[in-house]
Design a binder for these strands. Sequence first.
RNA 1: GGCCCCAUCGACUAGUGGUUAGGUCAUCACCCUUUCAAGGUGGUAGCACGGGUUCGAAUCCCGUUGGGGUCACCA
Length: 502
Amino acid sequence: MVAQRVRTRFAPSPTGYLHVGGLRTALYNYLFAKKMKGDFIIRIEDTDQSRKVEDAQQNLIKTLEWAGIIADESPEHGGSFGSYVQSERLHIYREYCDRLLEDKHAYYCFSTSEELEENRQLQLKQGFQPKYNRKWLPEEMGGAMPSSEIRKKMEAGSPYVVRMKVPDYISVWFEDMIRGPVEFDSSTIDDQVLMKSDGFPTYHFASVIDDHLMEFTHIIRGEEWLPSMPKHLLLYEFFGWEPPRFAHLPLLLNPDRSKLSKRQGDVAVEDYIRKGYSCDAIVNFVAMLGWNEGEGTEQEVYALQELIDKFSLERVGKAGAVFNVEKLNWLEKQYIKHRPSADIINTIRPVLAAELAKRETLLSVDVITGDHYLEQVIELMRERVGFEHEFVTFSSYFFFEPESYEEEAVKKRWIPETNDLLREFTAELEVLEPFTAETIESALKAFVAPKGLKAAVLIHPLRILASGVSFGPSLYHMLEVLGREAVLRRITKGIDLISVAE
RNA sequence: GGCCCCAUCGACUAGUGGUUAGGUCAUCACCCUUUCAAGGUGGUAGCACGGGUUCGAAUCCCGUUGGGGUCACCA
């Protein structure tokens, strides 16, 4: 057999936002395809019109692209295997359904949902596993329903579904690329509905047909699909198609080890984007949830291209992984530490603009929105923030006057002489030339030494007056960036306020 | 409940018969230090249990327990 070009897919249903588990599934499909020099495709599974959400499709694709996962073929970009939206392929499913009907691998079923439910309850009460009772299985297929009855219903225009006829007592086997051999007994499988009464196919039917027609070589999906493998395999067999290779990924888990879900934290990728996580960190983090390079590697930080180069399905683990935000936070910090300031400026400028629209600043807007100023703030703060937007929000004193002073810190750092010392030192700052971290530092030390005081008696009050808070970057550098005018203004104002307070 | 999957520190994991069971996050202590971070050093902490196989099991087999998934005209 000639080696085929690898084709993988991510097939979400447009019912809302992109789930982080979905992101990982998409990512692994993408990484595997790219690693194998193949194609990654997005297909939209919208066979349930009732759950369809407006704009979900575009959002899904947009979010994947945000993460750097670009499809080679998709509803948005086209491709030669379209349409990539299942609701636009109804005629195809109809055609293949007819084939199954003709070959006696499927049959019409006119049972109503009430009837089905009644049957289920009855079986439950009798202690049986609930299963479709095959009431409408035709006589010629081994059932009890005469074809005349079926014809009568048809002619009356009664609503129906099409079910697949699962053979009794055969074993279905396949080799999962992650889990190895898995075996099922067909007697535990229900006669799955293939076509719903609204004329739409079910997931199971549509995905098998599309996976074959779109020539996917590998199906990489979540473990929750493992139990429906026999249905899918049987369909391949009915059609005489060779199934692709399958890999079922372990689930992403809540801290309590149940399937990752809302209610126990955020599950939408959009939630994390909104909080300020970068695509670098999210992708890196999610990639490591279930995959690792192995072989004694101690690397934790991987760029997307690096993941592509190193990815392999063999190194995907079998056990579920807890989505641990702590480590994600750490990763985010790693990226912030090393990201070029120009990139950071691009993302924080809008944040700053939004703040500026809300609040007055006494600083020069031209200066504080300029590259030079922002770059200085970034270099002072990059090891102290958890998210990029915190360059603005966490250290707002670089852009706005402090509105209050940390009470505890004032109490701790103020002695009776503090304000007098501050006044005296201010006079020196006024004439200091140039006004740099270096000169401020030596001025302060020279000021304090003859008095037999420690630098700390001024350092802490200065920080509090200049920033409003007791923590932050190097004081001297902070004052330099703020500039003489702002520093003097803040000290003067602060002395007044704090004197009054005492 | 039936079926299926899974099982190394609190979390993510390395480990494929012989290791003082390694790394990262978190946590604790110390160092650095004007604060907060960052960084450095060190520490606490793990092979679910029971049987086999073997000279030797975290590693192989069986069972138990535990966890999870799935049993729709949803995907």
